[in-house]
């Protein structure tokens, strides 16, 4: 693995009884890199994310983040080290306004005034200032995705895990999200799980393909898109045509 790697997993495995959801995954992300993680349903992408954030305790292997071993650490400790996650189904405080959701995240390590400033910055960055005072329980799915991303960013993470961030978004929202992610890359590392191949083309340079819990192939977008097995097995004929 590269010396610049911010996150490195070595033989990371997660078993549920006889089912191996993550199988000896060796994976690395550099500081400032934007990596896409693709694979069919059941490939182990979300389980992999949960292993990284401590929501699941891996049955084998190790996770090294910024030189620290994460195995055995609690979720909140891992988050405090600098890993943020936007979950597949937006995980928000529905009774609070968008601003309050974001401020709650910023408030963890900042005083009231500073957390309000961070909240304003993030609202502007994601371009959701108009949603600031709306209760998130009343928002559309795509808007909720954006609020959750804002909430994660307000914690000032060094690595952000995004599980299907573009799902349920309008074309405008998706374009805006792609622009934001490109903008964030460099300042922080991003791992994006996504099924929308057009969106992946918009944001990624490097792709890792997971299949049956294992890393099937890694490479740049053009190489992966052109890979015959990836097209047929994971992306399907439609993607082949679109590519």
């Amino acid at each position: 693995m590269s010396e610049q790697s911010l996150l490195t997993t070595s033989d990371l495995s997660m078993r549920f009884g006889g089912v191996v959801a993550v199988d000896q995954v060796n994976f690395a992300v550099k500081t400032g890199e934007l990596r896409c993680l693709i694979g069919p349903n059941g490939a182990g992408k979300s389980t992999f994310f949960k292993c990284l954030t401590g929501q699941l305790k891996p049955t084998a292997g190790s996770v090294l983040f910024a030189g620290q071993e994460l195995s055995g650490q609690t979720t909140h400790d891992i988050v405090r080290l600098g890993i943020g996650i936007k979950t597949q189904v937006p995980n928000l405080f529905d009774g609070l306004a968008a601003r309050e959701n974001i401020a709650l995240s910023a408030r963890r390590s900042n005083n009231q005034k500073r957390s309000e400033e961070i909240t304003d910055e993030i609202l502007e960055l994601i371009a959701i200032t108009g949603l600031a005072n709306r209760e998130v329980g009343h928002l559309a799915h795509g808007e909720r995705q954006l609020v959750e991303l804002a909430m994660v960013l307000a914690g000032r993470p060094r690595l952000v895990l995004l599980d299907e961030p573009a799902a349920g978004m309008t074309a405008d929202e998706r374009d805006r999200l792609a622009e934001v992610l490109r903008q964030l890359a460099g300042d922080m590392s991003l791992i994006v799980v996504e099924h929308d191949m057009q969106f992946i083309r918009d944001i990624a340079t490097e792709i890792t393909v997971l299949h049956r819990g294992r890393v099937f192939i890694e490479g740049d977008v053009a190489a992966i898109m052109a890979h015959a097995e990836v097209q047929e097995i994971y992306l399907g004929k439609e993607a082949n045509g679109a590519a």
Partner: peptide
């Protein structure tokens, strides 16, 4: 926030 969504609260870094 713990009462409303314990998982998210933990994912924000709160013990």
């Amino acid at each position: 926030s713990i009462r409303e969504n314990e998982v998210r609260t933990s994912l924000l870094g709160y013990d």
